[in-house]
Amino acid sequence: MQVSKDELLHIANLADITISEDEINQYLINLEEILNFAEVVNKAPIEGLEITIGANERKNIFRKDEVKIFEDNEALLKNAPTKDLNMFKIPKVINT
């Protein structure tokens, strides 16, 4: 599976990751190798098989609609690099 540079950059952009110029070639080679290997799935005898999402077949696991307050509110914001007025502070976003 050949991956183009543009494609790689598009994917990196979707993942919000920057790849530097000197990393690009390495990533392209890695990706191609791994994807070529992953092609094996196309040879597997899977005609007519359903997909499996999770590793067990549980269903309808719900929670009761009952309020539980998380007490340690302070700990929730403690790790924030920047905050103000008990909110996470980020650069200005125009399209809100």
């Binding site: 103000d84 502070k89 976003v93």
Partner: peptide, 14 residues
């Protein structure tokens, strides 16, 4: 919700 930060010129996440 994103709130506009009046003083800092950034946005605040609630």
């Amino acid at each position: 919700k994103l709130n506009h930060d009046e003083f800092g010129g950034g946005s605040l996440v609630d």
